[in-house]
Amino acid sequence: MVLGVVNYGVYVPKYRIKAEEYIKVWGRFSARGVKEKAVADLDEDVMSMGLGSAEQAIEGVDLRDIKVLSFASTTPPYTEKLLSSFLIEGLGLNKNIFVSEHLSSTRSGTEALISCLSYLKSMGEGLGLVVASDSPSTNMQNDLEHGFGSSATSLLLGFQNVIAEFEGASTYVSEVPGERFKPKNSSKVEDLGLKGYCFTSFMENVNGSLKVLLDKLGRMPSDYNHFIVQQFNGRDPLRAALKLGFAKDQLTAGLLAPLLGDVGTCSTLISFSKVLEEAKPEEKILIVSYGSGAGSDALSFKVTQEPVNKGKVSSALNNKEYIDYLTYLKLKEAIV
């Protein structure tokens, strides 16, 4: 039996702000390679966005077949309280299913995906739903803020009607304090501006997870049609990809940070949805995530068939309305 992705869904809030708006106000825009980014409306948060993406992913299936739900976000609306309960009630899922919640870093999306895959593998049947939704935020003066966008994506996993077969996964973890972090009792992301330190950690962890997986599968970077890497901005992913032995065209289909910004733990999985929408059967997809502090997951998939209901990602990316910086400040409730 083949385990893999059965369907996907995305939710991108309609508002976009362009880099130029930041330049008008601050004289500069620190998120390299980001042209514009997605901005949540006042009534949208990671729960509502996650639900919106999940509705697409589960369309047409018997909800009773869903046996596991894994949710990922670095910006949950509560720091203590179950969150998957919202999705269970909103989607009408069975209340007896296993749920897991992954909330500590931008790696949490792939962590949720591996958790869900593992659970399904042990069951040998049924469907699993992964929901990754994020809307990172910090103070408006912080350079990190320039890149922060909002989006959600969901993957429906299972053994039947698989569109991309799961081939394997590996993880690398190392202790790296003082990268991107949220102090206790704060909802604002901080960093210490240690750019070289962070990039070194990024390369060590990403390399660490990739190497093990490629060795396990007996593959080379060039065996892959698509390479998806964590996107904190629009430029570093290419720099990292080249260093890791991948070429620019392997990155293109999944590069969304230029259009969405840094969508945190949703990054790798929404790029995966985008690639699934465009990939052809037999194409291979390699995903590598990164979370500060630090850790990385690598996952390999092989496309088995084209998705039935195409166009969800492109329509979400194309449905947009531009806002100015003042409106942005209001939506972020930053004027107090």
Binding site: D43, D45, M47, S48, L51, G52, P77, Y78, G90
Partner: peptide, 14 residues
């Protein structure tokens, strides 16, 4: 569509 309505006493109403 399911959205956030408001927050009161720290509890979000969707």
């Amino acid at each position: 569509v399911l959205r956030r309505i408001y927050e009161d006493e720290g509890v979000i109403r969707y």
